[in-house]
Design a protein around this nucleic acid. Structure first.
Length: 465
RNA sequence: GGCGCGGUCGCCAAGUGGUAAGGCCGGGCUCUGCAAAAGCUCUAUCGGCGGUUCGAUUCCGCCCCGCGCCUCCA
């Protein structure tokens, strides 16, 4: 069964099959803006995309997948951050790019084959803007910026179905939906129409030394956000790509704008398939920087949560359904991972029936039904391991990106007095002095530690809350 | 106001026109001097009201509740 994914454009599931003669599947995934640490919500999307990447590799072969994920390293936020910290833009974005890479690696995400950055593709973007200007799809405003003329593209709104946005904007304002919006980054008032969006932003004093020569007739400045994806996608994957993905919040306006730019410039269909993963919620609300209800991987790691537990917790929800993240889901994940690990160990290198895992793979192939796949997996794990094929189990683990290597025990300092109590208890136990041993165990427990006996010794762990 | 998504066991979460996978927690058991770990095992009629149907949690309508997007946003 070929991998089927819901297509946001046609609003129906569609198989992922290469459309180019070389059989290489072209996959573009909108990446992060590198100005601070990405949060778990962001990583949900990247983990889901990693799943797509892995399944494609399994289905088509690793050499038949070209996965591109961009880095937005110039925009209002990156520039503001650099200014606030008195650093160069490059210095700031390099730091957060490295952090992003480290976080992705810890979560077991395969690196994309190509990771283009906006600032190293200025020429491509400028060229594209010039074509759009020549074709009458873009215009230079009085301030030297360049805008895309939405009314010049009939297909505008087909993805997000907001064709009459302009008319309805009034309603939105009345409904009070713009009260908390950050208006500092809104395009200038130089636009001919409210729905037009910036392709090129003329330099402003607060941009400091961040500027490049603009398209013909435009001022020096920097590219607008949307154009980078159109330009980099075109350069690395061609005019028409097989799949374009991102979080649901990118559906409008980002992806709508990308379609407009690319199709007007290239004169061909931009993407055959659009896929959007849903948001991660915290306390029922979207995890976001503006709400301040986010968790970064560092925060979670400091609390003692392993990256694999995080990945598992993200996999528990269907990618196209909002998932309410809780710390409790992490302890649940740790247990589940342990069960899987024990089962895998019991398997050794035995071979067995390959078909056992069919339900797992078919769930995965059916629109990335990770909860269904996990359910099917545990149905197997709950049975006798005999007859289970270890290599196929490993394929499942690869597909899910789960690394079952036992997490290293977090280095916790054991108080000397607790160690002393444990030693005394161990001695008492050896002497079969049960009353003394029990009394000492009670002392250790009240000190907040758990003493776990093994045949040849013992372990001390902080008592669970 | 427009567009979209969701409401299934204490928590999380699949699924199907024919009477509900799975994970966590909790209960019971086995093992272990105790404890832990590990293994086994038990627990739902699917937001509300109508409709279609031999039969609906699954289809349709209405209602209630929650979330997201409507140019910062994974």
């Amino acid at each position: 069964m070929a991998l089927q994914l819901y297509d946001s454009f046609s609003r129906s599931p569609k198989p992922l099959t290469p459309s180019h003669a070389d059989g290489v599947y072209r996959f573009y995934n909108c990446g992060p803006t590198v100005y601070s640490a990405a949060h778990l919500g962001n990583f949900r999307t990247f983990v889901v995309n990693d799943l797509i990447r892995r399944l494609l590799e399994l289905d088509l072969g690793a050499d038949k997948v070209r996965h591109v994920r961009n880095l937005t390293d110039v925009d209002d936020k990156t520039i503001r951050r650099a200014r606030e910290e008195g650093r160069s833009l490059t210095d700031v974005t390099a730091e957060w790019t490295a952090k992003f890479h480290a976080d992705c690696a810890s979560l077991g995400c395969l690196p994309p084959h190509i990771e283009p950055a906006a600032t190293t593709h200025i020429t491509e973007q400028v060229n594209m803007i010039e074509v759009l200007m020549q074709k009458g799809n873009a215009y230079r405003a009085a301030d030297g910026s360049v805008y895309f003329k939405v009314s010049s593209f009939d297909g505008y709104g087909a993805l997000s179905r907001v064709k009459e946005r302009k008319l309805r904007l009034g309603s939105a304002l009345e409904a009070g939906n713009t009260g908390t919006k950050d208006t500092t980054s809104v395009d200038s008032d130089e636009k001919e129409d409210g729905t037009d969006f910036a392709l090129w932003k003329a330099w402003k004093p607060e941009d400091g030394d961040v500027k490049w020569d603009g398209p013909n007739g435009a001022s020096a400045g920097r590219p607008g956000w949307h154009i980078e994806c159109s330009a980099m996608s075109k350069k690395h994957l061609g005019d028409t790509i097989d799949l374009h993905t991102g979080g649901v919040d990118l559906l409008f306006p980002h992806h709508e704008n990308e379609i407009a730019q690319s199709e007007c410039c290239n004169g061909t269909a931009f993407a055959h398939h659009w896929y959007h993963s849903e948001h991660l919620l915290v306390d029922g609300k979207k995890m976001s920087k503006s709400l301040g209800n986010l968790y970064t991987l560092d925060q979670l790691n400091e609390m003692g949560h392993t990256p694999m537990a995080l990945r598992y917790a993200l996999l528990v929800g269907h990618p196209r359904k909002q998932l309410n993240f809780t710390l409790e889901s992490l302890s649940s994940a740790v247990k589940a991972l342990t069960t899987l690990r024990n089962f895998r160990t019991a398997l050794g290198d035995q071979s067995g029936a390959l078909a056992s895992f069919a339900p797992v793979f078919s769930s995965l192939h059916d629109d990335l039904n990770t909860p269904g796949a996990l359910g099917a997996l545990f149905s197997l794990v709950n049975r006798d391991p005999s007859g289970i094929d270890a290599a196929t189990f490993d394929r499942v683990l690869f597909a899910l990106g789960l690394d079952l290597t036992p997490p290293e025990a977090p280095p916790v300092a054991i108080p000397a007095e607790v160690t002393a109590l444990a030693e005394k208890r161990w001695a008492a136990k050896q002497a079969k002095d049960w009353p003394a041993a029990d009394a000492l165990r009670a002392e250790i427990t009240s000190a907040g530690w758990t003493m776990k006996d093994r045949k040849d010794g013992y372990d001390l762990e902080p008592a669970k809350a």
